[in-house]
């Protein structure tokens, strides 16, 4: 009986191992992105962090929509101003990663540090939202989320957008 149980546990271990390795190989790009992105953030942000999460947490569409509808978060668009003007989430503030230093003062003046901020850009392949999110945390914002689905997912869900192409 004991031998049989050991065998079942061994099988369980093998199954979990095979499945996990498959999953890691399947998602290796995502994992490498997460790990490499996170490593440099530890180097740059940890000194400025206030003990809590120094890295923005990912947020899904539903969570962002919930925050948006309750007016509980400030949305920050990390794409450049031209793309922003073509179409963005209604009410979002533009803060491109390249213009962060010149525009951050205006945001600091308007948005208190305890506010929840959701940063987004052009969806899953786009890393600017994470970059801007980290910079915001380094400037003292404590509740920063990154909406990884970004503008494409928001628009596809039929949620409010504005800009020159908002009818398209």
């Amino acid at each position: 009986m004991k031998l049989k149980l050991n065998r079942v546990f061994l099988e369980m271990g093998v199954i979990v191992l095979i499945a996990s390795v498959t999953g890691m190989l399947w998602n290796h790009k995502m994992l490498i992105g997460v790990w490499s992105g996170n490593l440099d953030s530890f180097a740059t942000v940890s000194s400025a962090s206030q003990g809590q999460d120094a890295v923005p947490a990912p947020a899904g569409l539903m969570q962002v929509r919930d925050l948006y509808e309750r007016g509980a978060a400030v949305l920050v668009d990390a794409r450049d101003t031209l793309v922003f003007s073509r179409g963005h989430i209604k009410g979002a503030v533009v803060l491109p990663v390249g213009e962060f230093d010149s525009r951050i003062a205006a945001l600091l003046a308007k948005v208190p540090l305890h506010s929840t901020i959701v940063v987004y850009c052009n969806g899953y392949g786009c890393h600017d939202s994470m970059a801007v999110g980290k910079k915001l945390m380094a400037r003292g914002y404590r509740n920063v989320l990154v909406f990884e689905g970004g503008y494409p997912e928001w628009k596809d869900a039929g949620l409010p957008v504005e800009g020159e192409n908002d009818e398209a």
């Binding site: 199954i15 499945a19 996990s20 890691m24 998602n27 994992l31 997460v34 996170n38 890295v55």
Partner: peptide, 16 residues
């Protein structure tokens, strides 16, 4: 943060 992604990468495959 990192482990959320590791779980997301592996757990669905274990379920599958």
């Amino acid at each position: 943060y990192n482990l959320n992604y590791l779980v997301a990468a592996t757990l669905p495959w274990v379920e599958f």
